[in-house]
Design a protein around this nucleic acid. Sequence first.
DNA 1: CTGAAAGCGCTTACAG
DNA 2: CTGAAAGCGCTTACAG
Lengths: 340, 340
Amino acid sequence: MVVDNGRRRPTIEDVAAAAGVSRGTVSRVLNGGVNVSPTALAAVNKAIKQTGYVVNTHARSLVTQRSGSVAFILSEPQEKFFEDPNFQVLLRGCTQALAEHDMPLLLSIADSEQDRERVVRFISGGHIDGALLFSVHAGNPVVSRLASLGIPAVTCGLPIGHEFDLAYVAVNEAEGGRLATAHLARLGRRRIATVTGPLDTPGGRDRLKGYKDGLEEAGLALDQKLIAHGDYTRISGQLAMEKLLKQDPELDAVFVASDLMALGAMDALARAGRSIPGDVAVVGFDDSPSATSAIPALTTVRQPFKRICEEMVRLLLALLDGQEPAAVILPAELVIRETA
Amino acid sequence: MVVDNGRRRPTIEDVAAAAGVSRGTVSRVLNGGVNVSPTALAAVNKAIKQTGYVVNTHARSLVTQRSGSVAFILSEPQEKFFEDPNFQVLLRGCTQALAEHDMPLLLSIADSEQDRERVVRFISGGHIDGALLFSVHAGNPVVSRLASLGIPAVTCGLPIGHEFDLAYVAVNEAEGGRLATAHLARLGRRRIATVTGPLDTPGGRDRLKGYKDGLEEAGLALDQKLIAHGDYTRISGQLAMEKLLKQDPELDAVFVASDLMALGAMDALARAGRSIPGDVAVVGFDDSPSATSAIPALTTVRQPFKRICEEMVRLLLALLDGQEPAAVILPAELVIRETA
DNA sequence: CTGAAAGCGCTTACAG
DNA sequence: CTGAAAGCGCTTACAG
């Protein structure tokens, strides 16, 4: 039963009165119940229910000097955010992982210079305890600012240039690239091309490394004509594929460093009249929702996004707890569907 | 120049000392500068810069009883959230509109019974001042709870069942449906089908109404065989289109109540060997990013998402200011591309 | 195990 | 226009 005395929200004082104890005891119950007698505990819990008490987080934060919330920072130009299905998965995953700790997620989008200023100001203003960072190109100013301010932060993907002063969670990018390439070689493909991401991102750099490893492992020569670059957008995948087809019309496979770019590459292949996987086998990266809905369904390297989010939140909470920044590398996994 | 005295953040006390005034005066400057002499104002502003002072929002919220943040609540099953590109646009638009008022956006996802409980608890706990609500089916429990708790809330789209106790922003759905249908009729199409959204959503219900209006206006008869229903997912659009083709193989146009479903419908048409727009003209709804990237590019009814977000935030701030709930209806606009 | 008390950093009547 | 002071609702040594 919830008692509503007028309009005002019940405070710890009301609970104390109802339970016949002091405010201190109520507070102790609220904070884990240590040094509280079973009798008092029961009385307080009953009083909490009875009064419908909910802690005032502002009052609590004022004394604990902790805000109890974290920011999800997207420092990416707007178009990519719009287009990339991975962000939604990550946003949701983090929201849920945080919710399990009863922490709200503050969304901050910092894709312009001005926004970045605001976001950094906001964060250094102590409004949040820590940050979850996404889409981190080498040299991203938000990342450096956070790192130099010493604000607890965890990045998704290896933060190039801050490998040692920031915590991060990443899939084993190189291994993923190697798995994809090895799979294509195993299928008997001999002219395996690749579309990379930007080389100032870990996904661009390391998936390419994996591609090279896979080629070498299969005894295939590295050929610069078979390498093109994209920026993770669908259209960039299409353009890169067109370029590759021009450079080497005989190519029979392609490893594309993201599913979205793979979709673009498939558009280009279709327009060029190549069948998939008959003429050209395609492997993507991410296992994003678009991979399954593609026609034909995309063979890809899976990033365990849910797990990534959980680990990011875990790492961030550990940082808030005073632990040192750590890195978590998750295994990549090949998901075989129809395109290869 | 920022002075860092040890590790502790400067407080209003530090600013007062630096400016040679009382805390009260500093606070007055912070809150608009009324009743402050030009001299004091200048001194305080200088001291703020000098000390690098940033207001402690928790302390402020504790006394003002306002949190200064609002929640973006998504009460939608997970799959749709993942798939629907509109959410990203809305999320971004609201984040930005709010940022202009220096208010952070808290993201809450309430797609399960349990999540809903948490979200309602969170909100009634006073952690936020108001809510922005999305994807509102009639009878959504979160909506009713918010409405009955009297928490300032603005919904995106007409909140069926709460038309009069909640503020909302919506595009003129019926007019959009009418425009789409009229356009198809004007193109000479005579067997115009429609794929609706769920009829317990304003978009499902009212776009269908517009379709009927458009038909009538063009002197075309309403035929139940030409109406099928989807749930805004791509696959549902495909299934609905397949059903329509079965029910009336002679249909020559279709108005689909969302772009995403239109994409699904186009998949079905392609599989059935119908050319677009040659055999069947297609008009979508939303003008989401997927409309432009579709091949062929989708003719659609534009929802002014950016404007919608701005109006939602404006309305919410007005509610927080004590104004009565209002409704804003924005005009729909036809965007002609390649499919019709 | 418990209560009384100080204090977190701000805002806002109130008196002048 | 300005300062002194009360108070927002909590946590946490401290003493017992």
